[in-house]
Design a protein around this nucleic acid. Sequence first.
DNA 1: CCATCCCGCCAATAA
DNA 2: TTATTGGCGGGATGG
Length: 367
Amino acid sequence: MALPNSDMSTESGSKYTPYCRKQKSLGLLCSNFLSLYNRDGVETIGLDDAASRLGVERRRIYDIVNVLESVGILARKAKNRYTWKGFRAIPKALQDLKNEGLKENCHGADGNCSEKVSDDDEDETYSDTNNLSQNDKSNPNSLSKLSVPQKSGDNRKEKSLGLLTQNFVKLFLCTDMELISLDDAAKLLLGDGKHTSMTTRTKVRRLYDIANVLSSMKFIEKIHHPETRKPAFRWLGLENGPHNESKKRVFGTDLTNSTLKRCKEDGNAKLQLQKQVRHQSLENEVDTLKTSAKSFQFGPFAPVNEPKVEAPGNGKPKRVIDWENLASTYRPRYHNQALRDLFSHYTEAWKSWYAEVAGKEPIQLMP
DNA sequence: CCATCCCGCCAATAA
DNA sequence: TTATTGGCGGGATGG
């Protein structure tokens, strides 16, 4: 069980990096993980193999795998083994999460929600924290709170990274909050327990982990609030990224699409939850991507850096990264030889990936 | 300073 | 029991 451990073998001295925390980030690890397994032929993934090939301890693999599974990319198959579902599984997974989230928080008031969700739903009966920090410039009076699936019983599972990830994603999919800070997310996703500063701290730590991997896949993006200096995350969804590959539209008839802005400003509308859900259906996102594939940007290979483009005037910052250049410049810095060898395949994978998504022929890179 | 978040101890769970 | 999983939070890092 002797873990590979960091090899500080001096090799041929050429900048033996003292340490550098960034090269050890979950985000980078996630990128490498995806690069490693998103190749055809990959059907199943062994955790030991992954840990070994990526040069990290087993523990880290669990983190990655749990959040990837939450988004449908992977599925647990057996002990030590996961099934690779691929990006094509994402749209449906997100749809499901969205539906689930919307259903969960309609407790209700009049009539019936005669529907008892498959297995989880809750009774959040607390008028808890409503002092969220300022979120985006939109109407401040339409704050929404997503119910926390939390259900009595299982205490361990409820705190799992996987569930947290799903709930975090639901916040974006089922809420009108456009910008969400991890602090807010933590408050909203707190379970039943009492809100201690420590419990929140811990929650936030997890959210940082999750945010990192979701960011590496370009599901979300970290930005600084326009006015406030507060960092927050914005949902990117399927706008960019390798997601979609062979649009399968398994959800032909969207049920949760528009015409859902019911619960209006009613004098006694107690459920001020989810005022206006985001209508942009996933299908639209996919379509958008499909038609603007030429400007496609990929995530997994993205180094943690960010062009840092300030929004000039209005509208989305739409940053563009010079992938060609990056591809020939960027190299992972893990102190692990195996990984280094492996990286030579990355550009290859990226090439085919790009070709697949863009539907064009692979572009030139690395002369 | 303080926002991030890596590391790995060690407790639940599964085999 | 041993082997897997994976909460959890101390405290290092980087801005």
